[in-house]
């Protein structure tokens, strides 16, 4: 619900902005530059008032929803592991590049590649181990939700326990052979790489499910 409202609000903002710019042109032609400046100022003032009104509501009313969390926040430990994995992958890419332009010898390359592959493997394993419990919990909750056929709040992998802000349309459209996104429970195609709703990466999960 919040999603559509926010999208509409964003579009309204853009439309209003475009209208303001368009109106500025005839104003400028008829009344001259100073009036255009005043018009822009007025638009800004209106925008400011609207924004502060919204701010006031957010501050005073605890029931107002905050921002939709678009990024996953699996905690510092996982982020650190992810960083190590990415650093190792970057190292492997660098190595490959340096070798392709002939700046690193074969022996050095082999040795360093082995080392960085080891680092990448270790980091990925640690990540999988870390994420495992959350995934299991999400799957359990999904199963529960499917069983009762009601909108079940899905806790985001992480720390917060506030209600999710996702629709339950996904459940109604569930197909028997679809892969469900562990994050938002939207059914996706079996071979989908990313969830079509929230963008969560599904590929690794699918791979895990088959091994």
């Amino acid at each position: 619900m919040n999603d559509t409202a926010e999208r509409a609000a964003k579009h309204v903002g853009l439309i209003a902005l475009a209208a303001a710019v368009v109106v500025a042109v005839p104003i400028g032609l008829v009344k001259g530059a100073p009036t255009v400046v005043l018009w822009i100022g007025f638009v800004l003032l209106a925008g400011a008032v609207l924004l502060f009104w919204e701010t006031l509501q957010l501050v005073l009313d605890p029931a107002q929803p905050g921002d939709v969390d678009e990024g996953d926040d699996d905690g510092a430990a996982l982020a650190a592991l992810d960083e190590r994995k990415r650093a190792a992958l970057q190292a492997l890419r660098d190595l490959e590049f340096e070798r392709s332009i002939g700046r690193i010898g074969e022996d050095d390359h082999r040795a360093l590649e082995a080392r960085y592959r080891e680092e990448a493997r270790a980091a990925m394993k640690a990540i999988d181990d870390g994420v495992g419990p959350w995934r299991a919990r999400a799957e359990a909750m999904l199963a529960e939700a499917d069983g009762t056929a009601e909108a079940a709040p899905i806790a985001q992998a992480g720390k917060s326990t506030k209600p999710a802000t996702l629709t339950k349309d996904a459940h109604a459209e569930a197909k028997p052979d679809a892969a469900e996104c562990p994050k938002c429970a939207t059914p996706n195609d079996e071979d989908a790489v990313f969830c079509k709703k929230c963008g969560h990466r599904l590929q690794e999960e699918v791979a895990d499910a088959t091994t």
Partner: peptide, 15 residues
């Protein structure tokens, strides 16, 4: 209350 307050802060900054 962080998400709500953050949103309020963001909008106030834009204002």
């Amino acid at each position: 209350a962080a998400p709500r307050l953050l949103r309020a802060a963001r909008l106030a900054a834009l204002g």
